[in-house]
Amino acid sequence: MHGLINKAIQSFVCSTYGKSRWIRVTEAANLGFVEYEAMLVYDNRVSRRVLDELCRELGRPQAELLEDLGTYLVSNPNTEALRRLLRFGGVTYVEFLHSLDDLPDRARLAVSDLDLPPLELREEQDGRFSLACHDGLPGYADVMMGILRAMADDYGALVILEHVGTGQDCEVIEITLIETAFAEGRKFDLGARAG
């Protein structure tokens, strides 16, 4: 798994639960180091072990933890740059949803060995959408749930999200848009640069 993904997990744990718990997890998982390098690629089994130990250490189910990770990626000031890149997707939440199809390609454009599985948005009737998160990255749909939820807050949209299960070769999230301008949302200026 790419260092950026591993580093995201590390950053989430350190900032939410404290560095000492992260160190304990790395020890329990026999990681042999404490800091991931963002631009190196790690063996999937290593990332797997860390996630397993993390769930054990925190006593929380993996899906829940990964959804929190998704929320963290959008809402924490540490990862403001990522939130900005997601906001590049569009002026409204619906445009953002449509831009998700391009997300894996955009990620690859930025970091050529960052392989995100395809995302496919389907627009159904009456403000309903379904997002197919294709296989290839365990927990992908869980992280996306957190991202979608936090981005709705970011745009000030009111949405209902439901992880409706596993399809042929993907997991599907159903998104029901109740109101596009429910709250003010957070300010976004295309020209500003993330510090």
Binding site: E37, M39, L40, L109, A110, V111, S112
Partner: peptide, 19 residues
Amino acid sequence: VETKSAAMEASRKLNLQLQ
């Protein structure tokens, strides 16, 4: 894209070397 890729490649090599 080309300049970024070249710079990224250089940095990746350095990363591996440092590692």
